[in-house]
Design a protein around this nucleic acid. Structure first.
Lengths: 179, 179
DNA sequence: GTATAGTAGTTGCATGAGCAAGGATTTGCA
DNA sequence: TGCAAATCCTTGCTCATGCAACTACTATAC
């Protein structure tokens, strides 16, 4: 019996010429896709989405398999590690990890439960609190980091030349219209 | 009392110079980020992640607010609409929507419950089944599409020139190393 | 033609995320 | 000073997703 690993799906993404797979051409014709997005625009948009989905899933699975650490938790540990005093306000953490505040609260809860992070009161603002990297958290991070960075290189960075990375960074950093 | 809309977080992402937000510089120094990823590599990678997270969340929220339709469901309706016979095998659908097969099963379940999609047996392969767009699904899609495409343009496409879109598409379409 | 391996789809389970709302505190402004 | 509005974080709720395992069926090999 095969392992039926469903991530394997992702490897077929680029092939799939459509119309194969045994589907008989139905009676109705395909709908006109609409003129709102032209081919190039749609191509770029889909490629962007697809690339992200695939890379993100590979990295997540990789980190989970090798270090039993979800990507989001790794990211929190990393952000704390590079932060001044190995600590960050919850809000700031949420921004850096690209998560909602509610999400960060729960995520830090888990890390605290595992002893990888501690909470600390904020004296400047009684509403606030810090997440602080513990020694165990640091160890855990150091164990996971090399493998993860290797994976990031393999599945993202190495697809591009230096100049392309520069271009990519510049394009992706462009500001997004507010509201 | 404010609405406390947490998506607002995302608007701060580009600012956040770190060290503000009332955190006092702790006793310990920031850790060396490690030499595994240099500045440019990290910049490109983070920008890519950040861009995706922000655009995806904006589009999701937008579609949900205006059409009460999650992005994934919209995507399924759309993929079915452009498909031959307005129908697709579950597997193929999973690939196109960038979801696992399990995910697609559940998603189609929901759409069937809402009457937007129907299932059909596959005569060529008794294991398979089709998801078929219903009339209601088609109507629903047509209602949602203009707004969504406008949003895609606004928050993604219009950030780039034609040449840049071409570059972006080319870069993102590059194959990802297997395994 | 039968056994074995592989594939299509679904389901159990666990997890993770977001929004909305709430409590506590701080800020702004009258 | 005092009160309304904004901010920080948390919690209740709901929902969506992935993996692993399972059933049913097909393809392959012998």
């Amino acid at each position: 019996m095969s392992k039926d690993l469903q991530v394997a799906n992702l490897n077929q993404l680029q092939a799939a010429p459509a119309g194969l797979d045994g589907n008989s051409p139905g009676a109705t014709a395909p709908m006109d896709p609409g003129s709102e997005l032209d081919d190039l625009e749609r191509r770029a948009w889909r490629a962007f989405l697809s690339r992200h989905a695939r890379v993100a899933r590979i990295l997540e699975a990789d980190l989970l398999a090798h270090n039993d650490l979800p990507l989001a938790e790794f990211d929190v540990l990393f952000q704390l590690a590079v932060a001044d005093g190995h600590r960050l306000r919850m809000n700031e953490l949420a921004n850096r990890v690209l998560l909602s505040r509610a999400g960060i609260t729960r995520l830090v809860d888990r890390l605290v439960a595992d002893g990888l992070v501690a909470r600390a009161k904020c004296d400047v603002d009684a509403r606030g609190s810090y997440a602080v990297l513990t020694d165990r958290g640091r160890v855990r991070l150091d164990e996971a980091r090399p493998g993860h960075l290797t994976a990031v290189k393999r599945y993202f960075v190495e697809s591009f030349s230096r100049a392309e990375l520069e271009t990519l960074a510049e394009l992706m950093e462009r500001s997004i219209p507010a509201n």
